[in-house]
Design a protein around this nucleic acid. Structure first.
Lengths: 186, 186
DNA sequence: TCGTTTATATACCGATCGGTAGGTATAGGC
DNA sequence: GCCTATACCTACCGATCGGTATATAAACGA
């Protein structure tokens, strides 16, 4: 972490600032200032702000998927435990003021006026990957209707994240976690 | 609609532009241009952009709550039908390219860096009102655990809206609508 | 040793941001 | 007739936006 390349430092700062304030609320100047560099240096590594934004989201996406896998793997073999653990981890992160919901969804919201934007495609792809991960877990448990159940569970998960963010109250993720069990049994 | 006051026209344009492009993506200049006025006129009716944003969100909030009540009232007496109708209406709006999810949630996402901002409070209040509306419906049906069930259903609803927006696919709201029945029975 | 590539900086661009100082036309009350 | 409030305008403000033309200093290969 100490000896970091310039490119890596830019990306790390973008990861923090874009998530904290939102993409449109963070100017290139703020990033270069915190990186201790100047604008042409940033544009040496990234051709445009859009490119930096995409790199930022790909970084977040990879981290989320890795964390999801880790959480599910550590929760044992039962599906309800696996997926319940994901909701529990949302509840755990909710009180942290630095946690601000899903970066992909928030970015998609910021680019609502531009449906063709790369950011929108990244958000859609990301959510599909989470859905696939849930579907695999449900299927491996031998439960019927894995595609439908996985879809219901991802929908529930993003609702939990949204409410956790909007209210700052971990109970929403916990209530959703309880719903997971009901949905898996149905 | 034809004979509209200047203030009303500004608000109507803000309602459209802010929702379509996002608040930070719409400058005061764009609004005054479309309204056929100049900036001092806008600032004669609204003290700041923030004030206009708040007026815009209050307008949206009232409209959503009225539409919610209408949908539920028209769906008959059964709770599952009432709440299922809400999810069906999300599914119906999903293919409309002008529909872009919940304006309150999207605004809260845009102001992620400012937890004290009025916009964030409006979003939280709005979601609580929807939750209350669901709770009343569940309680009136004589079902147990109305607070928990209502909470689970609102979480599910916002997840459905998020996925409908991110994927542009009405099936997510339909899958969530099917989950409503399972959750109400549990 | 010389030319090229890599990695940085200074200084600037036009556009747009939210907001305002100051002026004006008009209508109604006294 | 005069005053005040309402409802608008022209013209401008400093700040910030994303981005670039140009210079330079160091490292490296031939």
């Amino acid at each position: 972490m100490a000896a970091q390349s310039t490119r890596g430092r830019i990306l790390a700062i973008a990861k923090d600032l874009f998530y904290r304030e939102g993409i449109r609320n963070v100017g290139i100047d703020a990033i270069v200032k915190r990186a201790g560099i100047t604008k042409p240096t940033l544009y040496y590594y990234f051709p445009s702000k859009d490119a930096l934004v995409v790199a930022y989201l790909e970084l977040r996406e990879a981290a989320i998927l890795a964390s999801l896998k880790k959480t599910m793997d550590a929760a044992g073999d039962d599906v309800a435990d696996k997926i319940g653990a994901v909701f529990a981890s949302v509840a755990r992160e909710t009180p942290n003021p630095r946690w601000k919901g899903c970066p992909l969804v928030r970015s998609a919201a910021e680019f609502a006026g531009d449906p063709q934007h790369m950011v929108r495609r990244l958000a859609s792809t990301h959510k599909k990957r989470v859905e696939e991960s849930f579907e695999t877990a449900v299927r491996e448990a031998g439960l019927p209707d894995a595609p439908l159940k996985a879809r219901q569970l991802t929908v529930l998960l993003d609702g939990a994240i949204t409410h956790a963010f909007v209210h700052g109250d971990p109970d929403y993720a916990l209530a959703a976690g309880a719903a997971v069990r009901a949905l898996l049994k149905a």
